[in-house]
């Protein structure tokens, strides 16, 4: 059902009729229902983030130039582009992590639920609890065990009772599809896990804070193909509850997991489109060159 669902959304209309014709009555009906759900989802799309004229600098180097785009709620939003195109900088502007680097500056607006994040009086610390982030290299805290790693973000804000904490640890690890692998050894150091497990631990750690958005900066680039598939499967589930922005250098990954894709080049937004449209009918010549592998 699920694969048909994706197939359906990726097919053009004429193609769909052929598919329907080839199915039996029940298949036909299911496909019809899936189509309805998908249509409803498309029409009820909400914007989570909106950037307006967003530019960012490192010292005198301009990493982003005048980017205006929308990040859609409860969808997987992929940002693609060659190395150094500013895609990481872009998502780091969404939770104000860009300014952590000395000499970094931001100009323009980022609206989260229509509230400007760069207004005076917005506390980046509180913002980052709503907008979680997973990094390129898995980075569990080496001085903490698995359990403490999951709770590390929560411990900052309030004291937890033991059973409350147990519940959060289990649900966060379940959501990150790691629970079954680590439930017997929650007291082992987080760094004793394999790379893919560590990355899922980092996802669990972000989810435990109960954010609205999950930013992922090339989360699979340090992982092997099996671990990558696990994380991609996870994204399909997580988007029901969270808005996901994923930076990736892999176009096939963007095509597999995302609903909307933005293509960045030299700090500029070239194109942002429905993922299937962007990969089948790129409007810009540069997008076409990039996705067909002529550069990058």
């Amino acid at each position: 059902m699920e694969s048909r669902f994706i197939l359906e959304t990726k097919c053009k209309r004429g193609y769909k009729y052929i598919e329907i014709a080839s199915e039996g009555i029940s298949g036909n009906f299911n496909l019809f229902k899936a189509g309805k759900v998908e249509e409803q989802r498309l029409s009820s799309r909400k914007t989570k983030f909106r950037t307006e004229g967003l530019s960012a600098w490192f010292g005198s180097h301009q990493a982003l130039n005048n980017i205006s785009m929308k990040i859609l709620k409860n969808e997987v939003n992929a940002i693609i582009g060659p190395s150094g195109c500013g895609k990481s900088t872009f998502i780091r502007c969404l939770n104000r992590m860009h300014e952590v680097v000395p000499g970094a500056r931001v100009y323009g607006h980022v609206y989260l639920d229509e509230k400007d994040l760069y207004e005076d009086g917005i506390d980046p610390v509180l913002l980052r609890r709503r907008v979680g982030m997973v990094f390129q290299k898995p980075n569990p805290f080496p001085s903490m065990n698995i359990r403490e790693n999951v709770l590390s973000g929560l411990k900052l804000t309030h004291r937890l009772k033991k059973d409350e904490a147990d519940e959060i640890v289990e649900s966060a690890l379940q959501q990150a599809a790691l629970w079954d692998e680590v439930k017997e050894r929650l007291n082992k150091p987080g760094t004793s896990l394999s790379g893919g497990q560590q990355q899922r631990l980092c996802i669990a750690r972000s989810l435990a804070v109960n954010p609205e958005v999950l930013l992922m900066d090339e989360p699979c680039s340090a992982l092997d193909p099996v671990a990558t598939v696990r994380i991609e499967d996870l994204l399909h589930k997580l988007k029901e509850q969270y808005t996901i922005v994923i930076v990736t250098h892999s176009m096939s990954q963007a095509a597999r997991v995302s609903d909307q894709t933005a293509f960045l080049l030299m700090g500029e937004l070239i194109e942002v489109e429905q993922t299937n449209n962007l990969f089948t009918h790129p409007r810009d010549k540069r997008t076409e060159d990039y996705i067909t592998g002529k550069f990058g």
């Binding site: 952590v100 610390v125 913002l127 979680g132 290299k137 980075n139 805290f141 001085s143």
Partner: peptide
């Protein structure tokens, strides 16, 4: 202490002092 750990802590909504106290000093 690698800066990636400081960033991880900031990204979880820790302030600078909380990051120093909970992540940097223990390491």
């Amino acid at each position: 202490v690698p800066s990636s750990l400081r960033e991880a802590s900031y990204a979880l909504g820790a302030s600078r002092w909380e990051t120093i106290w909970q992540v940097v000093l223990p390491m």
